[in-house]
């Protein structure tokens, strides 16, 4: 046996799917180096900059009224956009995965639209619709409703941009699960709502939570679309990402990076929660991984 193996090695035998050690090392170094340079280094820089003048200066940045207002507005926007997309996403995924109807493939394409369109364009769409020269502008002005350069516009733009996250997470899983469990519940006498609550929803709960996490991270971090509709009114229509830009442009680096570090911290917490979910419920989520 040993001799035979030796003979193979003498002819450079190795498993067909394995690369040479040198190539393996190069690939590993490239991957690790890329992650370090483009992801870890900037992340470290954010926290380093935020804490450059010490912890007290870092904390002081959050006593600023405009900063606090930005944090509040971001939380408010996420608190509206995420539940709204939870309902829309569930409804869309339910319809697509469980029913056949004309225009279904068009709907699937449209759900992905916010992913493929530049966020700036997404924001601009709402300006064109609700701005003072927009389609509904005159009517809105006559009725004293403010959408653009106000909180409703920010909420609408955020909902638009984050729409795909929950739906995209649920559709493949629901399609894979099919409809026979629901049919079984119906034959056993359960109402439609009861079936949804006791069969459909529990079957997708982890994917749903996962989608909510991703949706929330993006809702809090969205810059482009919100920048177009917000109007940057300090203390009123500035979300955290917009506020970071303003502080930075005012050379308030500690303040800018302090707020930025809060956003980065949120991203890290989301990532951690996502990893925990994947580790714990990997099998149930496997069907949903397409992006």
């Amino acid at each position: 046996m040993a001799e035979a193996r030796h003979a193979f090695q003498g002819h450079g035998w190795r498993p067909v799917a394995a690369e040479r050690p040198a190539i393996r090392r190069v690939l590993t170094v490239v991957a690790v180096g890329f992650v370090a340079l483009f992801i870890l280094l900037p992340l470290a820089a954010v926290f380093a900059e935020a804490l450059r003048k010490g912890v007290p200066a870092f904390l002081e940045a959050f006593t600023d009224e405009a900063t606090l207002a930005a944090v509040q507005l971001t939380l408010l926007v996420a608190a509206i956009a995420v539940p709204a997309n939870l309902v829309f996403g569930l409804a869309a995924a339910w319809a697509i995965a469980k029913f056949e109807f004309p225009g279904k493939s068009l709907l699937i394409t449209l759900i992905d639209l916010p992913f493929s369109v530049s966020p700036v364009v997404s924001g601009l769409v709402f300006v064109l619709l609700f701005g003072s020269h927009g389609l509904f502008g005159e009517w809105l002005q006559a009725n004293d409703v403010k959408i653009i350069f106000a909180v409703p516009g920010i909420v609408l733009a955020t909902i638009f941009v984050t729409f795909p996250f929950i739906a995209r997470e649920l559709i493949p899983l629901m399609q894979e699960q099919g409809t026979s469990e629901e049919e079984a519940a119906l034959t056993l006498g359960a109402s439609g709502l009861r079936t949804f609550l006791t069969v459909t929803l529990p079957n997708v709960k982890w994917a749903l939570l996962y989608g909510v996490l991703l949706c929330n991270a993006r809702a809090m971090g969205e810059f482009g679309a919100v920048a177009v509709v917000s109007g940057h009114i300090r203390g009123l229509t500035n979300t955290m990402p917009l506020h970071v830009e303003i502080l930075y442009n005012e050379y308030n680096f500690v303040g800018a990076f302090a707020v930025a570090s809060l956003l980065a911290g949120l991203a890290l917490v989301t990532l951690l929660a996502k990893s925990l979910l994947e580790w714990r419920y990997g099998d149930e989520l496997a069907g949903a991984h397409r992006h």
Binding site: S180, E181, A184, L186, T187, A190, S191, V199, P202, N203
Partner: peptide, 18 residues
């Protein structure tokens, strides 16, 4: 379907997995 009181057994069982 709820009011027909049938017992239906599906080819792939369709047990509630959770």
């Amino acid at each position: 379907v709820q009011r027909r009181h049938v017992g239906f057994v599906f080819q792939h069982y369709a047990l509630f997995r959770h």
